[in-house]
């Protein structure tokens, strides 16, 4: 099963087994990684699952859709590699993925 590392804003790391087919948001929420709220459960409705994809992984996670990009425009502390983690589907290729969490989702 792919492994994903989530790094909290404080620097604390969480390495999580992430089933293929689920999303990077779901794997975090199901393992109680603090810092990803995902209030809407992945419907791309709340923009509270913002992460920074490690630059080395950006080519593999792909780009945000225009819908996602519009949501990100209103998130706090957005950077070039910002994504909504509910929109990144876990595949074999993402084994080892590293994402960092912003200071706050609201």
């Amino acid at each position: 099963m792919p492994k994903i590392t989530y790094i909290e804003h404080s620097g604390k790391e969480h390495v999580v087994d992430a089933p293929e087919g689920q999303t990077v948001m779901e794997a975090a929420v199901k393992h109680a990684v603090p810092g990803i709220d995902a209030d809407c459960g992945g419907a791309c409705a709340c923009a509270t699952c913002h992460v920074y994809v490690d630059p080395q992984w950006v080519s593999k996670t792909g780009e945000a859709s225009s819908m996602e990009q519009s949501m990100l425009d209103f998130a706090n502390d957005v950077e070039d590699t910002s994504r909504l983690s509910c929109q990144i589907k876990i595949t074999k290729d993402l084994d080892g993925l590293i994402v960092r969490l912003p200071k706050s989702q609201h």
């Binding site: 791309c44 819908m67 519009s70 949501m71 425009d73 209103f74």
Partner: peptide, 12 residues
């Protein structure tokens, strides 16, 4: 409707 920026902007 299919306008997320308007939604988040108005919410803010």
């Amino acid at each position: 409707i299919n306008r997320p920026a308007e939604y988040l902007g108005a919410k803010m």
